[in-house]
Amino acid sequence: MRACGICGSDGLYISVGGIPPRQGATPLGHEPAGEIVSIGAGVRDLAVGDHVVLNPMAAADGIIGSGGAQGALSEYVLVRGAEAGTHLVTIPAHIPFEVAALNEPMAVAGHAVNRTQPKAGDKVVVFGAGPIGLGATIAYKLRGAHVVVVDIVPGRLEKALAVGADAVINSASAPVDELLIDLHGEAPPSFARGRRAGTDIYLDAAGVPQVIETATRLARHGATLGVVAVHKRPVPLDLGALLTTELTVVLSMGYPTEIFEVTRDLIENWQRYALIVSDTIPFAEAQRALDLATTPGAADKVVVTFP
């Protein structure tokens, strides 16, 4: 391993004592980038010295860092039956390992974007400017969408603009409804009551009930609401009120096909993706990295690097 990102779920695994049935024995780290140091005789299309990103979900001994026998927060990971394009893919040597380690979370963001089926020219609002929200912002922009990002942390909103967002809204100090209608226009009259924004796609990457409330209140007829954030408590949804909007609600989990589809974008736009990484911490201080990443508001994307 040369770099491994810290995910919010790592803190969850620690707090609950592992992942059943492996409680207390869950190796951590599922955002890996590394360098091949040894290969078996039957391995094809890979060579010692290749820089690679892995598919944690393809490992033969369970999902890497999420209940499997291995975690990427360790010096080495053994990929059994390794096949290029299935278990891992090579990346150019000029891509920093800490940026390459974004491949897995960007695949999560990419799947969320795919689920909402954006088209060039669509008007999109992303709630939450954490790593997934920023990754989704980049993905939407690469597809030709107009993207507004909403968050309450000024530094995150600045980063959203830096990665390409067309506009940002600080929902702690500004009226989201009015500003979004100003930015995306007002939807034409329909059966839905009240003023509605012309926004085509709402993406919840924040995981707070207010996002769902805002999106359903503003959604025009035929809009799409995507949810990639983890909501830890039930969120009420008034289906009767939503009936007239014919709102499409899609949920997003993991990356069924996106794990290596996103690699091309990461390579071509690595300097933009690099802005998502807020802290790089050496492996010798991995506990500090975990503490930093799991302290609300202390950091954005923390990546552990290896010598």
Rank of each mutant, 00 (worst) to 15 (best):
C4Y: 06
G5A: 08
G8Q: 04
G8L: 05
S9R: 00
S9A: 09
D10S: 02
G11M: 09
L12P: 00
V16Y: 06
R22H: 14
T26C: 13
H30W: 05
G34Q: 11
A41N: 15
V43T: 14
R44D: 12
D61G: 01
S66F: 15
A72D: 10
E75T: 13
V79G: 07
A84M: 10
T90A: 14
F97V: 09
E98L: 01
V99G: 07
A101E: 04
L102E: 03
N103W: 01
E104C: 06
M106F: 10
V108C: 14
N114H: 14
N114Y: 11
T116F: 05
D122T: 06
V125I: 13
F127C: 03
P131I: 08
Y140V: 04
K141W: 11
H146I: 07
V149E: 11
R156D: 06
A160M: 06
V168S: 04
N170I: 08
A172R: 13
P175S: 10
V176W: 03
D177L: 04
L179T: 04
L180M: 09
D182R: 15
E186F: 04
P188S: 13
S190E: 06
A192P: 01
R193L: 07
G198V: 11
T199A: 09
I201R: 08
L203F: 12
P209T: 13
E213I: 00
T214E: 07
T214V: 05
R220P: 00
A223C: 07
T224N: 02
L225R: 01
L225K: 00
G226M: 00
A229M: 04
V230E: 09
R233N: 09
V235E: 05
G240V: 11
L242A: 05
L242V: 03
V250Y: 12
E258P: 06
E258R: 08
I259L: 12
L275C: 10
D279S: 07
L292S: 01
T295M: 06
K301P: 02
V302Y: 02
V304E: 07
